[in-house]
Design a protein around this nucleic acid. Structure first.
Lengths: 229, 229
DNA sequence: TTTTTTAAAAATATCTACATTTTGTAATTT
DNA sequence: AAATTACAAAATGTAGATATTTTTAAAAAA
């Protein structure tokens, strides 16, 4: 089995998306066609295709005849994204509790265990990436219980949009033992509620869990003047 | 103030989206580049841009080196979209009841009135379009109370994806006096719950309201063999 | 002198026409 | 029938032409 040959636009899409989320391009930056062509070794046509897709995902903005820019960040958007994500995820969790089967339970417990056992053995960045990866997998395992691909797609859209903000929170959290302990406690409480099939409580816990990063990110954004108020 | 000059890709995006939703192109149809170029009088580059955006919106599918197709329809997808939409909208309504102000209440009551007063005075198609337009405006007015642009965006995404299925239901409903009376009753019940600020009841009513079309559409789809099972 | 206006030049975005690569098809061979 | 090959159709990519916006600088007005 071999990976399907991708066209230029798809390759550029992936690279540019990565470069935006990782902060190589900063919010509001002009995305100069000549620069992008050079950077990704690609023609203007396919490059525009990639940009169009990112426009549809709200990661890039376009102005007719005036080219493309990295979408700005703002405290208002931060709050909106996290609020929407928290309520969406709470709703998904309630559904998952109602609909999830035994296999789902097993997956969740498995991912929770894998996440809890990330120890500070590795290099700083490795540790951060590993925790982040497993944390995402844990939450995704829970969400999958809702059984709706459309809801999972919407969730993925919001997570993509949140990613630039989330990156700011991640470093702080992983490097604070206290924060990690808190997170572990919250996760345990959520799993407990899931297993007891208490949809209401699981939803509420999830809502709070997802909103805790907001004040922290707000502070960092203000500090670094990364975004409009 | 004059409408900004749009580029070719944006124009083609709008036309193609309309042609897909209205059924000019049918699910699974190959979107032949030569045909699209001819039809919309446009080059291949901008056409691909438009297609890329529709791929991001799940209305078109792409296979590398094999071109583009209209996304298929299926009973499974119908159920998934409507289930997701109903739960999302119910959640949004609960938020709207908690967060909506007086201006929101006034808007909702206004739109409800405008919708209820659509009479069978006009020609068949005019009547259908008018009812549809006002029905959408009524629901959108309710949803806006949640105050979250991101949630409203997600809602719009799902509505776009539902549109092809919805079209099938619309004709049936508007031309059945009984169905229209039922809808009016449901709308009234929802508005009542909103005004009493009963979030839970409003949510439940909305959930049921949005799921009623599913059996009807299922029957039509089966009848017309429009989709996979 | 400072500000505003205008005109030209440069930079940039966008589009088209053509070249290249890949895929699908049907005839031919095994 | 299955595999191979040759050809036609289609998708994708590139380079350069065209149109638009932005910048620059000079001229005119305040």
């Amino acid at each position: 089995m071999e990976a399907e040959r991708q066209n230029q636009a798809v390759i550029a899409y992936g690279l540019l998306k990565r470069d935006i989320t990782s902060g190589q391009f900063r919010p509001g930056d002009k995305l100069l066609m000549s620069h992008l062509k050079e950077r990704y070794q690609i023609g203007a046509g396919p490059m525009r295709e990639a940009l169009s897709q990112l426009v549809a995902e709200r990661m890039v903005t376009a102005a007719s005849q005036r080219g493309f820019r990295v979408a700005k960040m703002s405290l208002q958007e931060l709050n909106d994204i996290y609020d929407a994500r928290a309520h969406l995820e709470a709703m998904i969790v309630r559904l998952a509790v109602e609909r999830g089967d035994e296999h789902w339970e097993a997956e969740v417990i498995g991912k929770a265990h894998t996440l809890a056992s990330v120890a500070a053995l590795h290099s700083t960045d490795e540790m951060m990436n590993l925790w982040d990866k497993r944390h995402k997998e844990f939450h995704t395992a829970i969400a999958r219980g809702c059984g709706s691909s459309k809801l999972l797609e919407l969730r993925a859209t919001l997570m993509d949009q949140a990613e630039r903000y989330r990156q700011l929170w991640l470093r702080q959290t992983v490097f604070s033992t206290e924060a990690l302990v808190n997170k572990r406690r919250e996760h345990a409480a959520i799993v407990e509620a899931l297993l007891e099939r208490d949809a209401q409580r699981a939803g509420t816990l999830m809502l709070d869990h997802l909103l805790t990063p907001v004040p922290i990110i707000t502070a960092i954004v203000r500090e670094a003047k990364l975004a409009e108020e």
